[in-house]
């Protein structure tokens, strides 16, 4: 992608920052993309992350970080336009297509993304993964949720409570 005017006075070339994953992989991205993270935004505004310094992210591994940055790079231009009020329908449709593809991933990766989006405070990504998980679980039974989360089998007492709940709120189990 051609580097757009960053608007931060660097005469054309977009300002780059370096992020360092928990397993010490260095990622160089445009400051505008990394700034989608509320957590990183202040550091970047203060001039951090440039040159050889880099910002260490001890909670995010390289596989997750590369996925997160894929999202940020795609969404940065629209975010720079202030939520893209003048974006064309084509642009919006393209972002939507990207988002749908983006969360079409393995459950474990999705879980890492939830944590990363939460820790880095990337609002759009938080909503996107939350919506995906909500769609995945909304039709599930309590037992299926337990299995998905790796909870131990319910005790007889818990099982009895679950049965009673199911009798009482039968309508919720369709």
């Amino acid at each position: 992608m051609a580097a757009p005017e960053s608007g931060d006075g660097n005469n054309g070339a977009a300002r780059m920052v370096t992020l360092i994953s928990s397993d010490n992989t260095r990622f160089e991205v445009e400051a505008a993309a990394a700034s989608l993270s509320q957590t990183l935004q202040l550091t970047i505004l203060d001039g951090g992350g440039g040159g050889g310094d880099g910002i260490p992210l001890p909670n995010v591994d390289s596989a997750t970080l590369s996925k997160v940055l894929e999202y940020c790079i795609k969404h940065a231009p629209a975010a720079a336009n202030g939520g893209a009020p003048n974006a064309t329908a084509v642009d919006r449709a393209e972002l939507e297509r990207f988002d749908n593809e983006f969360v079409n991933i393995d459950q474990s990766v999705l879980y890492s993304l939830i944590m990363a989006a939460h820790n880095l405070e990337i609002e759009g990504l938080q909503s996107l993964v939350a919506k995906k998980v909500a769609d995945m679980i909304k039709g599930k039974s309590p037992m299926e949720i337990r299995r998905t989360l790796g909870f131990p089998d319910p005790t007889p007492e818990e099982q009895a409570e679950m049965n009673a709940h199911m009798l009482e709120y039968g309508w919720a189990y369709e």
């Binding site: 944590m115 938080q126 993964v129 909500a134 309590p142 199911m166 709120y169």
Partner: peptide, 27 residues
Amino acid sequence: PGLPDDPLVEILTRVPAKSICRFKCVS
């Protein structure tokens, strides 16, 4: 386990009331 409350709220606000009612007996 291992998931902070905030992301879970984000997820549960996006499911219908019917699912919330059912999820009360997950644990």
